[in-house]
Design a protein around this nucleic acid. Structure first.
Lengths: 144, 144
DNA sequence: GTCTTGCCTGTTACAGTGTAACGATCGGCG
DNA sequence: CGCCGATCGTTACACTGTAACAGGCAAGAC
């Protein structure tokens, strides 16, 4: 992610090797990764990376909007949009291939805002995760 | 929940004591309960209920739409609506008092359906969880 | 240079979450 | 009675996440 690298320059000092490599691992994978999976990929023979370090790196990355946490999977994916941290994304999680697509819909945001205002609820963070079957996997099943 | 009791009759054999008591515990609490919290409340001196039994009861209850799982909290709340299992609910989770309010919005469902159709994604289950501050807690803060 | 400060990382330990596997129990049925 | 299916108890285990403390490293103050 070139965007991440660019944002990294702004944080210069803060974007350490561990955090950069954590982001790389998450970005290379096409599906959500658990913290322990990341730790395993970051580890080399004789150089083990503890899961707790990964968690701290992930905290940093999520705070700066470079990765997202998938609550229903306890896993992490790279952020594919340049949206601000306060904005809400919709995650489409495919049960067949495990891929996660991140989309943003102004329409959904509007209806959410409307419903929240009606309820007198002041939102801080939003989680919208849809499990199902992505278009590619639907096509694959029709063929087979 | 009288509704749950009524639905229980239909499942006659399936609605065992453990499952009923699990539902009671979840319904009595005004906030999401973890599986181990439930197990603790179900346990009596000399009669310990293991968490794994609670998980099985919760699986049953969620399948039949009597309780919901709050993915962002790893906790469970009673279902407050008679909606079908396929319908999507919106959970408003208050960070101050920990309460969870369940609402249904046709507007949100429409916009979600629209976005999903555009993406060619076939949804199976939907998770919409908003963290923030409920109306009651906002009023309380203004006073204090 | 040295000292202090603050941040990041390593390590250990531990609490919480969830599942697999096996055995026992109970009710219904031939 | 014996069989069968579902539920439940128990143990064991894997995964997820946090607390606490120690060491390293860069930057600024003296």
């Amino acid at each position: 992610m070139a965007r991440a690298e660019r944002l990294a320059q702004d944080l210069s000092l803060q974007f350490t090797t561990l955090r950069r490599r954590t982001l790389e691992v998450v970005a290379e994978e096409g599906r959500p990764l658990g913290a322990y999976d990341i730790a395993e990929r970051l580890s080399a023979p004789g150089k083990r990376v503890a899961a707790v370090s990964v968690y701290r790196a992930l905290d940093f990355l999520t705070e700066h909007g470079l990765v997202h946490r998938i609550a229903s999977r306890n896993a992490f994916v790279p952020c594919e949009h340049g949206h601000g941290a306060g904005e809400s994304a919709v995650f489409l999680i495919c049960r067949s291939c495990g891929s996660v697509d991140e989309t943003i819909s102004a329409e959904i945001e509007r209806s959410l805002d409307h419903t929240l205002a009606q309820a007198g609820f002041k939102p801080a963070s939003r989680i919208v995760e849809i499990e199902g079957e992505c278009g590619a996997c639907q096509g694959r099943q029709e063929e087979g």
